[in-house]
């Protein structure tokens, strides 16, 4: 346990000093501030850009539009930035040989995997948490009184999907060689998951649902139990992926 905390501290120092933390926090803070603003200003912007004489009825924006921006930005740009920042999380250390000194001092490989995942998860949690909190504050300010359903669960689903992607990235980084091999493998796995939705009934269990049905939850069109199977499968997949990452890393000759 001691090794886990020592290495976790080292990982967090690395994120702080190599600007990874700054990049992620900046991106997610910008999202948090701009989500409600974009929702509020979009109708006015559209009206300004319309040709003269054309009348289009744009519905009055609501809190749901603000949260739609949050989920869209997080799912698209947010997760991409997250994966780019953490690409090569393990492969980089293996190829550079920075772990050799520490492993020969007794650092367990289990602690390396656990701390790397723990640090990424912590940064992701803080980033998405701040973004959600800022979105929430501005949404309440700009759209007071608008109802939003199951918001916490909808954000939790997005967080869980991010946690799943980080586990995929870590396992892929243990399997693939080089900095971007893991990123490429992660991309391939996401494409496969999207493809699985073609199979009837698979969508219900697919982790992709956690990042795709958030607005249904927020709008009250879906109830949380509808996403329980996907959430359960995702938690199991995270554990399996961490196990895989450890098994592969244990066999790596350094």
């Amino acid at each position: 346990m001691n090794h886990f905390f020592v290495f976790l501290k080292k990982e967090l120092l690395e994120y702080a000093r190599t600007y990874k933390l700054l990049i992620l926090l900046t991106v997610f803070i910008i999202f948090g501030i701009t989500n409600p603003l974009i929702a509020k200003l979009t109708p006015d912007l559209l009206a300004n850009f319309m040709p003269e004489g054309m009348t289009v009825t744009i519905p009055e924006p609501t809190a749901l539009d603000s949260w739609a921006q949050f989920f869209k930005n997080t799912q698209q740009m947010g997760l991409i930035v997250l994966l780019l920042v953490f690409s090569g999380v393990l492969a980089n250390e293996i190829s550079k040989g920075t772990l050799i000194n520490l492993l020969t001092k007794g650092l367990s490989r289990q602690a390396v995997i656990a701390a790397k995942y723990g640090a990424m998860l912590l940064v992701w949690s803080v980033s998405v948490g701040i973004s959600a909190l800022l979105t929430c504050i501005y949404t309440v300010y700009l759209f007071p009184g608008d109802p939003v359903s199951h918001l916490i669960f909808a954000v939790f689903c997005m967080w869980l999907f991010g946690a799943f992607l980080l586990a995929v990235l870590l396992a892929a980084s243990a399997l693939a060689k080089g900095n971007y091999g893991g990123l490429l493998l992660t991309g391939c796995i996401v494409v496969v998951l999207f493809s699985l939705n073609i199979i009837p009934g698979a969508a219900k269990y697919n982790p992709i649902a956690l990042a795709a049905r958030n607005m249904e939850l927020a709008a009250g069109a879906a109830e949380p139990p509808a996403l329980y199977p996907a959430a359960g499968i995702t938690v199991l997949a995270v554990l399996a992926l961490l196990g895989l990452a450890l098994a592969v890393f244990r066999k790596k000759e350094l």
Binding site: K10, L13, E14, R17, T18, K96, G97, T98, I100, N101
Partner: peptide, 9 residues
């Protein structure tokens, strides 16, 4: 090691 690698930061 022959070329010890450290965390540069």
């Amino acid at each position: 090691p022959d070329v010890p690698e450290f965390y540069g930061y």
